[in-house]
Design a protein around this nucleic acid. Structure first.
Lengths: 103, 103
DNA sequence: ATCGTTAACTTTGCCCGACAAAGTATTTTG
DNA sequence: CAAAATACTTTGTCGGGCAAAGTTAACGAT
């Protein structure tokens, strides 16, 4: 039992990222504005949290027009969903670590 | 459905604090050195993460001598265990947030 | 008696990252 | 023509995590 925390994904090590991923893991194609409001984030803040998630290919985006207005929507990729699940499993696993103290 | 993230406790918003609490929620009275090794932390680092946990009364400490050497051990308080559980429930709850979009 | 070591911290200083706010481009509505 | 909305990018600040070094006290070895 060396580091317990290696199972946790650094990319998800933030409440807002957890929020983003939890929303996107149950809702496909959520638009920028909705995400912003749900998470109470400023424009720039959301963008900057999205970046590493995009870089890791955990989310993908789609740009389209709704009426005449541009709209960006996001969804979690399969990879992202798996990674997020692994992260949550990691959290849960931490708790199961019990009385065993062999190294 | 306003902010989803209010259920998450800021005090636990860190992987190392999660680690500390998960260890202390299943093991009472873990000593400084063991905690340090399990979590791969430097001395000072552990101390500084402990502070806010102590301040919130989520952990308590006991100082005693083992043989002739001083030893500090930590345990989660009842309050701490409850708060930690609430935090984890909050995490889980985030995931259940489904298709409902009434505000 | 002195040196080195261990335990448990505190202090110092750095650095990165989260944040709000302001700026940008384009289009649309009044 | 002016204001608002979308989706960002840029700027600048501030705080917090981190390693490392310093601290105190007691012990053990030489």
């Amino acid at each position: 039992m060396k580091d317990i925390l290696t199972q946790l994904n650094p990319v998800f090590d933030h409440r807002n990222r957890l929020g983003i991923m939890s929303i996107l893991s149950v809702n496909d194609w959520v638009d920028y504005g909705t995400l912003k409001e749900l998470l109470n984030l400023t424009d720039g803040n959301l963008a900057s949290h999205m970046k590493p998630l995009e870089a890791a290919e955990y989310v993908e985006f789609r740009k389209q027009f709704v009426g005449r207005r541009p709209q960006t929507t996001y969804a979690a990729t399969e990879k992202g969903k798996l990674a997020f699940k692994a992260h949550l499993d990691g959290l849960e696993a931490m708790l199961k670590i019990g009385k065993d103290n062999e190294k």
